[in-house]
Design a protein around this nucleic acid. Structure first.
Lengths: 216, 216
DNA sequence: TTGAGATTTTAGTAATATTAAAATTCTGAG
DNA sequence: CTCAGAATTTTAATATTACTAAAATCTCAA
């Protein structure tokens, strides 16, 4: 039972006893023991209490993890182009069961501008090279090389490159952009993303129906 | 009741009837109706079935979102040094209610090596400059500039800088490293982190009891 | 207005979520 | 190695409720 063993792993990594957690959650120690060993299953309400006692989002205990890792080589990543105003991105992260982290390397051309949008999750921009302007809830911030900006994506936000050179950004966020499908071909990814409304840097682009692989 | 109304919102946005969802989930229509209106609460097992029928991660129906954002300037970030073998890091992310994303800019000196460790969450390394070796479950990979590596942190992992120059890494992960305390002073952070066993790049370091702010 | 499909309501009961307390195991100091 | 206290597991229960089937009501297009 994944749920119980995850609870135990987290609790132990925090160095807390079952008694401490049970007490903080308002549940009995015996019950916590049975839950951790998969003998009992908590109600959603009790699980929320346990998650709160462990200071974790509930989802951490419910998603299925599998063992996986993914290396992406700079030389092997396929750049993708979206729209006519050639935003280019490379995927750094990949999906495995329960994974929440998505990371992209984005090349944002001069004058490129995204539409204001809001959606679930949180995200962070780190500027590797160049400058962009970020607007969150109508508050504007200029990000220069080395700067970062982390915000809750439920707030209305957009970005643009106000300079004359391409900006290179590392974007990471906590929404699953690509689904659990593995990369089979470049064309599979853009189609999936065309339907996605959750990808902050990509959703903003008024996408044409044709996507092409960037041959550079 | 957030859970039920989220289920209804998603179902309607997919244009599906309750009967379709109930059938796909193997539950009765009457129960789905009661759950959506908050009259009944599903077990975790039933919620998984409903989430699967709606093709959503379970966590979507359980998490609460909140609002905040944080800018970090390259010129204003305080570098922190851990241990004698001077690993230096800068914090890019910050904490707000429900946030899961942590990001650090790490300067890993030549010969620096971390202890093998496993813990909750997932993480991704992106090499901005230099090279490091990453070992996950005894599988070794060399990461060069521009490469990235994303893996589940429950797998035993460690890293080291096998070169003669400092490596600059962007590390992001889904565990809350710093807690919900805001940055008050540089010394507050290192003490908090000294107690934390959850910070993959930092936990590995055999930390001395004295932490100093890097004056460079 | 009618009728088919969708949703809500009702009345139940088998299952189980969760407990208190006893038993067992673990841990660390001496 | 021993032992006491802390931590965890086990046991036996029961109040609660998760979920059902079927009837009633609502909705909407023709």
């Amino acid at each position: 039972m994944i749920l119980g063993s995850k609870l135990r792993t987290v609790r132990r990594s925090q160095g807390k006893t079952m008694q401490e957690i049970a007490s903080a959650a308002g549940l009995s120690v015996g019950f916590v023991s049975q839950v951790e060993r998969g003998i009992a299953v908590p109600s959603i309400s009790s699980l929320r209490k346990l998650a709160a006692a462990l200071e974790q989002p509930v989802g951490n205990f419910l998603e299925v993890s599998s063992e996986s890792s993914q290396l992406t080589r700079s030389s092997e990543r396929l750049p993708f182009t979206l729209g006519q105003n050639a935003l280019t991105y490379e995927r750094l992260s990949h999906s495995f069961g329960g994974s929440k982290l998505t990371a992209l390397l984005i090349h944002e051309p001069p004058g490129h501008r995204t539409e204001p949008v809001s959606h679930e999750g949180e995200e962070l921009f780190f500027v590797i090279k160049g400058e962009i302007t970020v607007e969150v809830d109508e508050e504007r911030v200029i990000l220069r090389t080395g700067d970062s900006y982390h915000f809750d994506s439920t707030r209305t936000h957009c970005t643009w490159n106000h300079r004359t050179e391409v900006a290179t950004l590392l974007w990471c966020g906590t929404m699953d952009v690509f689904g659990s499908s593995e990369i089979e071909s470049p064309h599979q990814i853009p189609e999936k993303m065309a339907r996605s409304s959750r990808v902050s840097p990509l959703y903003h682009v008024r996408m044409s129906t044709n996507f092409q692989e960037d041959k550079t």
